[in-house]
Write a protein that binds this DNA or RNA. Structure first.
Length: 894
RNA sequence: GUCCCGGUGGUGGAAUCGGUAGACACAGCGGACUUAAAAUCCGCAGACCUCGGUCGUGCGGGUUCAAAUCCCGCCCGGGACACCA
């Protein structure tokens, strides 16, 4: 009767773990800090209305296995879960349904928590955080206050309190307003009228990182246009250098590090001044190829460049103005579309090339970006493809200064310089590196330029005109000053509002919360208005890993001692889609907090691991049109359309409603149990690889768990009882046991869960084989084997393991039971099978003693009949013996 | 266009300090048990042929006694970036 029944044992153990707080991590008072620690973190989810999908449990299971394993190895483990619950989708859903986002958020969180708990994950639920909880966002606001009150000191490469900023006497002399302006120009958080990415469909501003290369929103793929708005910005580029350097300190996938480096986009070059003819104005350009300066035949300014108005000649004014207006109206998409040709207008002005005195025309064009470098370039058409295209379009002169490539093609590679000399300097004959060095020194000496490092990374646009986000702790006073809400008055709560639609004007919905909006200074009677923008969703997720360590601390963000002990996060698992956004922002905030002494480590996440996406099979017909999975049947080793009978191809695709191939965790838990689901997710393949869900696969692991159950439990008995266990273990089983312990622990440490599980299967197969042929015969599975198997299985299938553990007569959970000891000496085989080769081809195998010498192996090979057959009529040329592996005899015809 | 990752049986995948390719599973085939089915257990299983071999890790070369593994050149799939001067 008592068959393996996950539906009854899983809820039972989940209740025990929850009720007894089995996975509670001690707080400061009871924490034994002499023990090693493991902070194992999942990227917390956005609790959407759709509930958990199978991708979530993949990463969660992996971290859960590591957490459970580390506990058994005697580590203090911190393994928390929480909710990234602010954000646009909740607000949009609320607007559609008329339900307040705080209500839908609560419902969704409850669903997510129930689903996650049904997977048996060993989270400490006492540490749950929710970014929308005022007691949480109080500290998000606090961190913003710190950003506002911090400036970056380039001399010591650190963020410092604004109180330590020295005000130049010249600024002091100009009065309070000038001082405020000066300080504002140094704060890490500042407000500015900027051209922003405005998404009409979302009625909100987006950060650069939230806009795709096609000029559409990452969320929802809506069109995005440029529009000037007053916004809060964060000066993340000041930390660019450290954000690049400190990638050396962390153990992250190379691909992610590379993406961050690319995003920060450091480049070395020089700034060069060009004198405008007939004017005192100079145009400063940034170039990474100062060595090509002799080939500069014209210049281009961004249409928004400040000098355009001053240098444009009256004759060109109308045309220039028209072009500027046209450019301003274009979206980034239209401006950067590579398919379109180059456009531009001559300003009428000329400037002097500082190395050869040539007067060259100054153009404006939208292919030059106002926001990068100086917003102006020197154009070297012979050696830059963009300049080449522009010069060809407008018939501008092209001078080659590098020897290489075909005569009528642009050459962007290295080569000996030509046509590059004047009376004072010559680059002719030099290669790229030498030429750059020489010309840069020359320009510096003449005061016409200097070496310069540039970053692609821009200031982070940090405000949104939405309701469902953290309010800024700021007040705009009637006298034009801005002040922070005092720490003691935090949090600034998000007001309860009935209507919170975005206005569409760029004004946040909070502007309508009249009672909340207006404030009066109790001391001076001065009137003010709260900041009505809210923070972007990234704000809450930037620092949640810190709060988990000390989640209920009402006095400070985090206790210093706890921060010292638990940080950094030892293992951080999540999807690769956060490669630049969340992970870059988080590192930036962490560095600011590091500079302020809140945390003691330069980097927040030591080891990062990206789980691959769970895909699913889908079907398409000969025209490559996809077919709903419900209309597909499998027969005769192929797939066919149920209605038309057409033969279909199996493909791998993302799970989607349209393909009808979505699998939800709830249905898998219901049909096969959480343990089977966990095991299958890990058995599918390497964690970091994308792989398709196969319903047959889950059957397979379920069968394995049933086999384990049957190995130990007497299914014929009326009640739940163990089969009789044997007292002694054969030499072979002992060896297999030690091999299994060692393999499983190595594989868990290396995050190779699929091969750990196969080893467990090998062990179970071995135990079955060793059972007496006749059922009921005296000895069953050796007791030590039974206990070890259950222990090794427990990180993977914790419900089954705890159930069997209690059947084995142990009263408490396995969660903190010491991991079994695997001894390499006992795992070693005493004989090995080696390959006998002739000329590199396998001819026979031989079982030999592990200690056999080279001579013995060679003699054995030569005595082998099959080997001899292939040596007939041959002369031996060479003999290679690798003990424990192969003997290879090289021979050639006599 | 540039960068990164990958390509192994019918399927998911093992094996990379170069040393017996295909562990473990899924699907398949055969057998046992059963009135029958399910479940379970045992066995077979890369391809090709003359049953002793030959070929075989996307394709073509190379290094080596020996290559899935290292090198060169391609092809295909996935991801990221893309007028950043």
């Amino acid at each position: 009767m008592p068959r393996y029944n996950p539906q009854s044992i899983e809820p039972k153990w989940q209740k025990v773990w929850l009720d007894q707080k089995t996975f509670r991590t001690p707080g400061l008072d009871t924490l034994d800090r002499s023990k090693p620690k493991a902070y194992i973190l999942d990227m917390f989810p956005y609790p959407s209305g759709a509930g958990l999908h199978v991708g979530h449990p993949e990463g969660y299971t992996a971290t859960d296995i590591v957490s459970r394993y580390k506990r058994m190895r005697g580590f203090n483990v911190l393994h928390p879960m929480g909710w990234d619950a602010f954000g646009l989708p909740a607000e949009q859903y609320a607007l559609r349904t008329g339900t307040h986002p705080s209500i839908t958020t609560k419902t969704n969180v409850d669903t997510f928590r129930r689903q996650i708990q049904s997977l048996g994950l060993s989270y400490d639920w006492d540490r749950e955080v929710d970014t929308t909880d005022p007691s949480y966002y109080r500290w998000t606001q606090w961190i913003f206050s710190k950003l506002y009150e911090t400036w970056y000191d380039p001399a010591i490469r650190k963020g410092r309190p604004i109180s330590q900023l020295e005000i130049p006497s010249g600024v002091l002399a100009q009065g309070d307003k000038a001082v405020a302006e000066f300080v504002g120009s140094k704060r890490l958080a500042y407000t500015a009228e900027v051209s922003v990415n405005w998404c009409e469909a979302m009625k909100a501003v987006l950060a650069n990182e939230e806009v795709t290369g096609e000029g559409r929103s990452v969320e929802g793929n809506h069109p995005v246009v440029k529009r000037p708005l007053k916004q809060w910005m964060l000066r993340i580029p000041l930390y660019a250098e450290r954000l690049i350097e400190d990638l050396e300190l962390v153990d992250w996938p190379d691909a992610i590090k590379e993406m961050q480096r690319n995003w920060i986009g450091k480049s070395h070059g020089a700034e060069v001044d060009f004198q405008v003819c007939g004017s005192s104005d100079k145009i400063r350009v940034y170039t990474t190829r100062p060595d090509t300066l002799f080939g500069a035949t014209y210049m281009v300014l961004a249409p928004e460049h400040a000098l355009v108005a001053q240098i444009t000649t009256p004759a060109q004014l109308a045309e220039v103005k028209a072009y500027q207006e046209q450019a301003a109206r274009k979206s980034d998409l239209e401006r950067t579309d590579l398919a379109k040709g180059k456009s531009g207008v001559w300003t009428g002005a000329k400037a002097v090339n500082p190395v050869n005195g040539e007067q060259i025309p100054v153009w404006i064009s939208d292919y030059v970006l106002a926001t990068y470098g100086t917003g102006a370039i020197m154009a070297v058409p012979a050696h830059d493809s963009r300049d080449w295209e522009f010069a060809k379009t407008f018939d501008l002169p092209i001078i080659r200064v590098l020897d290489g490539g075909k005569p009528d093609e642009c050459w962007e590679e290295d080569g000996p310089h030509i046509n590059s000399s004047n009376g004072e300097i010559s680059l002719d004959g030099l290669g790229l590196t030498d030429a750059v060095e020489k010309i840069t020194a020359f320009l510096a000496a003449k005061g016409a330029g200097e070496p310069k490092v540039n970053y692609r990374l821009r200031d982070w646009l940090f405000s949104r005109q939405r309701y469902w986000g953290e309010p800024f702790p700021l007040i705009h006073w009637e006298d034009g000053t801005i002040s922070l809400v005092h720490d003691s008055e935090l949090p600034v709560r998000l007001p309860e509002m009935e209507r919170f639609e975005p206005s569409g004007t760029g004004e946040s919905p909070l502007a309508n919360a009249t009672d909340w909006l207006n404030v009066t200074d109790p001391v001076t009677g001065k009137k003010g208005r709260r900041e009505t923008n809210t923070m972007p969703q990234w704000a809450g997720s930037c620092w949640y890993y810190i709060r988990y360590i000390d989640p209920r601390n009402a006095q400070t963000l985090i206790d210093n001692e706890l921060a010292k002990y638990w940080l950094p996060v030892d293992l951080y698992v999540g999807g690769a889609e956060h490669a630049v956004l969340h992970l870059l922002y988080s590192r930036f905030w962490h560095k600011v907090l590091f500079d302020l002494g809140v945390v003691e480590h330069a980097e927040p996440f030591h080891k990062l691991y990206n789980q691959g996406m769970i895909l699913a099979f889908a079907y398409e017909d000969a025209r490559k049109a996809t077919v709903q999975s419900s209309l597909v049947e499998e027969r005769d080793g192929g797939w066919f359309h149920k209605e038309t009978g057409e033969k279909l191809n199996q493909i791998v695709a993302k799970m989607s409603k349209t393909l009808g191939n979505v699998v939800t965790p709830d249905e898998v838990v219901a049909s096969h149990g959480a343990d089977a689901m966990r095991l299958y997710l890990m058995f599918m393949g390497p964690l970091d690889r994308a792989k398709p869900w196969q319903s047959n696969g889950i059957e397979g692991v379920h069968r394995f768990l049933s086999r384990v159950w049957r190995l130990l439990v007497d299914e014929d008995a009326e009640n739940l009882v163990l089969k009789p266990l044997a007292n002694t273990e054969s030499v072979e089983l002992e060896r297999l046991r030690h091999q299994t312990i060692l393999k499983v622990q190595e594989d868990i440490e290396g995050m190779r869960f699929n091969t750990a599980i196969s080893q467990l299967m090998v062990y179970v197969n071995g135990l079955f084989e060793a059972l007496p042929a006749t059922p009921g015969a005296a000895a069953g599975v050796p007791g030590v084997a039974a206990e070890t198997l259950v222990q090794l299985l427990s990180p993977f299938a914790p419900h089954l393991a705890d159930e069997l553990w209690s059947l084995l007569g142990r009263s408490s959970t396995l969660a903190y039971h010491p991991w079994p000891v695997g001894e390499p000496s006992k795992a070693e085989e005493d004989s090995v099978e080696i390959a006998l080769q002739v000329n590199g081809k396998l001819r026979d195998n031989a079982k030999v003693s592990k200690s056999a010498t080279k001579e013995e192996l060679l003699a054995l090979a030569k005595a082998n009949a099959k080997v001899q057959k292939f040596l007939e009529g041959q002369v031996i040329v060479k003999e290679i013996v690798v003990p424990g592996k192969i003997v290879n005899i090289v021979a050639k015809p006599a």
